[in-house]
């Protein structure tokens, strides 16, 4: 749309700036708050410029034990979060790409049924099946373990569906050409299909990483041992102080740290991400 109306331009810029401010202000406040001593927040005034406690606060949070009875430092919780997020992401992609491969390229009895059964699980997110899933995980003795954190979350109908759509656009002639070229199912998968769905994998990686990183309810339920706490759930724990003040400066540091990896993933992969969602490279 090419229009030359100065007022329209001014207003749209203004509303964009306003939008940015609305999104950025809380982040700014968090960033500023992480550099002040705890007492700065008792006064009821929110500081808007950096204080002088940055190094102490960040150092304390990262390497000392996180406050409020959590026995491990934040970096170890970050590690847990990372293990969980990556585990979920890689697991989801691996499982869904394989099931989509089976559904699209192989003829077997009840193939359609298999697809619809997978599809129906869309209606059963963790929140819905949390009690039975907990039961299963507990019986398998996976409470307080990485596998307990990751495994129940890695089946993904969404990703299967996305890969299915992607695979269905692969022309039949390409599959046949590969067959004549002597590529068996496994070769075809790794040599042809994986490179072709590279951008889709990247897009899913971004979405699933954020999904995995932001998990709150499930880690809250399956972990009781501090060694397996994840960052996102620990923030809540740090806030629920029974006596005394909440250590806002430390909470803010933790919050910022929790926001960082998803931001990095999005920024680092945004080109591939957009490509994967928008264009089909075939």
């Amino acid at each position: 749309m090419i229009e030359n109306r100065p007022w329209l331009t001014a207003i749209s810029h203004l509303s964009l700036l306003l939008g940015i401010a609305m999104v950025a202000l809380p982040v700014w406040v968090a960033l500023v708050a992480s550099t002040h001593p705890t007492e700065a927040f008792g006064s009821g005034e929110i500081p808007l410029w950096f204080g002088d406690q940055a190094i102490q606060n960040w150092g304390a949070v990262l390497f000392a034990k996180a406050g409020n009875g959590i026995d491990v430092p934040v970096w170890s919780m970050m590690l847990n979060s990372l293990v969980m997020a990556l585990g979920i992401t890689i697991g989801k992609i691996a499982i869904s790409i394989l099931s989509a491969y089976a559904i699209v390229f192989f003829r077997f009895p009840f193939r359609g049924t298999a697809f619809w059964v997978i599809f129906i699980t869309l209606m059963l997110p963790v929140e819905v099946r949390i009690v039975p899933t907990y039961e299963v995980v507990a019986n398998l003795d996976m409470l307080n373990s990485y596998s307990g954190l990751v495994l129940p979350l890695i089946a993904s109908a969404t990703a299967t569906f996305l890969f299915r759509q992607c695979f269905m656009t692969v022309p039949g002639e390409l599959v046949e050409a590969a067959r004549i070229d002597g590529a068996g199912p496994i070769r075809f998968f790794f040599d042809i299909l994986m490179p072709l769905s590279r951008t889709n994998i990247a897009a899913l990686f971004v979405i699933m990483f954020i999904y995995g990183w932001n998990q709150y309810l499930w880690p809250l339920i399956v972990t009781t041992d501090d060694a397996y706490y994840t960052l996102v759930m620990s923030i809540k724990r740090m806030l629920s102080v029974e006596q005394g003040d909440v250590e806002w400066n430390q909470v803010m540091v933790t919050t910022l740290l929790a926001m960082l990896p998803p931001v990095l993933v999005v920024v680092g992969m945004q080109k591939l991400f957009v490509k994967g969602l928008v264009d089909a490279e075939k």
């Binding site: 002639e173 390409l174 046949e176 050409a177 590969a178 042809i192 072709l196 590279r198 490279e281 075939k282």
Partner: peptide, 9 residues
């Protein structure tokens, strides 16, 4: 093949 079926990548 009619549509060449070259491996695009």
């Amino acid at each position: 093949f009619q549509n060449y079926a070259l491996y695009p990548h």
